[in-house]
Write a protein that binds this DNA or RNA. Structure first.
Length: 542
RNA sequence: GGCCCGUUGGUCAAGCGGUUAAGACACCGGCCUCUCACGCCGGUUACGCGAGUUCGAUUCUCGCACGGGCUACCA
């Protein structure tokens, strides 16, 4: 009754970790945390043909990135190991239970070869029944221990003939269970086929493994995608015969995440096609070397990714959308999980990220942004950027302004770097946006948007900027307010509307028509660099 | 084909017998403004269809339609 809540995420190590997979983890996690339960990671590597090296480590890294780390798993064994099904198979966990089912008359040996199965399907296929099943109707005419004389079965077994073990589902019974999300669900056993439980290689299929492992690992609540609903009756039967239906975990079949356009469930292909990630992190297939982009590398904050996923199929009813993981733990309830699938909307995902970039302290992600700058060659570790550009040492202004502070590699530079991020963050949707939005702070623009300036460029403006440079050089304080005041005074003296020279000023500093307020920019740029850029701009425009 | 699940604006969704049917994203106007963004104001767009139950159905029931999932020695 009052047993401890235990949930599990049981992925197959076959490739990248899909959005839907992460959401399943998330709901598992939220449910377990909110009830003080355990969250277990179990690796379902029973299909050798689909096993991909590195996939397990990758999954773990994804969970770490998302902040959804399991309490137990292959790398953190608890009392219910091992946590890889291949290892559990080696211990005979599954074979034993499959045999037990045969003893009880609920399973049987089947010797049909893959070719024979194909032949059967071809032979019985009709327009009304396009996919004939190996079931109570057909098993009598197949090669199995139910149809064959006992003697022949023994001989086949003794001869080492490859076999599988199939569940024996008897017809005409209605079985059902109460799904935590969907309510009562019923099935008629006449529709259920004799699924393979143990494969010829001795590995269990998902059906046997999930039941045996959930029992052995004392799983109390099992979440999985809706695509599993049709096989739930098989699992229910297995529970009934093996461990008792009353011990079966409560099931919760989660709605699917669908393609944004058209219909069907979201696949990696859709992401490639529509230009957005589907995997949590970059995944490169070891066989094909094909690289698939992940949300992380695309510039998403894990907090935003998780938040977005949580809202895809659940909400707290209040209209609130932005939640931290801890807040989600507090607010989450299975009753409010939707039944219907949701089309994935990348725009909305971007919006969540934007919210999080604005919400989090920049210190939380400045390291990531710094890396992006370094990748682009805009910032080098430990080197003041302007020096790196080969400015003559003598020209370096000691102690004042941006030059001394632009080095993001030391404490002082760090502060400057944070100020820059602070200034541009609200126009960044993805972390990668910081590069185009603020690289001009560290590297003078390579080209200036002359098209926006030249048509209206004249002698008056030329004079104004020459005057501005002179005045700036005399300034002892370098703050946005005084700058703006100075700027406007010169304009007034020259009978120029400030609005007319603001845009050229901006273009000189950043290269184009974008960015935060010009005086804020100039402040962070520093006196020397600002003057330098104005001079350069004058050279270009004249 | 069969079985199962689902169906509120373009998308995510609130609603749980009586509402002018929330809100968010997107979109379209406007304001703010040195640019871009933010912010603010405003706008377009929805209960799949048909029966029933009821004084009254978006809400309950049943059909239909549509969408989705499954139908492997894959998970």
């Amino acid at each position: 009754m009052n047993q401890k809540v235990r949930v599990r995420f049981a992925p197959s190590p076959t490739g990248g970790l899909h959005l839907g997979g992460v959401r399943t983890v998330l709901y598992n996690y939220l449910f377990a945390r909110s009830l003080g339960g355990d969250f277990v990671l179990r690796i379902e590597d029973t299909d050798q043909s689909r096993f991909v090296p590195g996939a397990e480590e990758y999954i773990l890294q994804c969970l770490q990135w998302c902040g959804l780390e399991p309490d137990e798993g292959p790398q953190k064994p608890g009392l219910y190991g091992p946590y890889r099904q291949s290892e559990r198979k080696a211990l005979g966990f599954y074979q034993r239970h499959a045999e037990a089912l045969i003893q009880k008359g609920h399973a049987y040996y089947a010797f049909d070869t893959p070719t024979e199965l194909e032949q059967m399907r071809a032979a019985y296929k009709t327009p009304e029944n396009p996919s004939p099943q190996y079931d109570h109707r057909l098993r009598g005419s197949m090669k199995n221990s139910l149809a064959l004389p006992a003697e022949e079965t023994r001989q086949l077994l003794d001869a080492g003939t490859p076999y599988v073990i199939r569940i024996k589902v008897d017809p005409d019974e209605t079985i059902g269970f109460t799904d935590l999300i969907r309510g009562d669900v019923h099935f008629n056993t006449s529709q259920i086929d004799d699924k393979v439980l143990l494969k010829a290689d001795g590995m269990p299929t998902y059906h046997l493994a999930v039941v045996v492992d959930d029992f052995l690992m004392k799983i109390t609540h099992a979440f999985r995608g809706e695509e599993w609903l049709p096989s739930a009756p098989v699992h229910l039967l297995l529970w009934r015969w093996l461990f008792g239906e009353e011990n079966m975990p409560r099931w919760a079949h989660l709605p699917l995440i669908l393609k944004p356009d058209g219909n069907g469930k979201l696949s990696k292909r859709d992401g490639d096609r529509l230009g957005f990630p589907v995997f949590a992190m970059n995944w490169s297939d070891p066989k094909t070397n094909e690289l698939t982009k992940g949300f992380r590398e695309m510039g998403f904050l894990p907090e935003a990714f998780v938040n977005m996923l949580a809202m895809l199929g659940w909400n707290d009813g209040s209209g609130r959308e932005v939640f931290t993981l801890d807040e989600l733990v507090g607010a989450f309830s299975l009753e409010r999980v939707h039944k219907n699938g949701a089309k994935f909307d990348f725009e909305k995902a971007r919006w969540f990220n934007h919210e999080w970039i604005r919400k989090e302290p920049v210190s939380k992600y400045k390291g990531l942004v710094k890396e992006l700058f370094q990748q682009q060659g805009i910032l080098a570790e430990g080197l003041p950027p302007h020096d790196k550009q080969g400015k003559p040492g003598g020209e370096t202004v000691g102690g004042t302004g941006a030059d001394a502070g632009a080095d993001a590699g030391n404490a002082h530079g760090d502060l400057h770097f944070e100020k820059v991020l602070e200034l541009v963050r609200e126009r960044c949707t993805l972390l990668t946006d910081f590069v185009p939005q603020s690289s001009f702070f560290f590297k003078a623009p390579a080209t200036l948007d002359t098209a926006s300036v030249l048509p209206k460029w004249n002698e008056g403006k030329k004079r104004f900027f020459a005057q501005l440079v002179l005045q700036m050089e005399l300034l002892h304080s370098w703050e946005a307010e005084t700058l703006e005041k100075e700027f406007k005074e010169i304009a007034a003296a020259d009978q120029i509307k400030p609005g007319d020279v603001l845009l050229p000023f901006r273009v000189m500093l950043v290269g184009g028509k974008f960015g935060p307020g010009v005086f804020e920019i100039a402040t962070l740029l520093g006196q020397a660099e600002t003057i330098r850029r104005i001079r350069h701009g004058l050279g270009v425009f004249n």
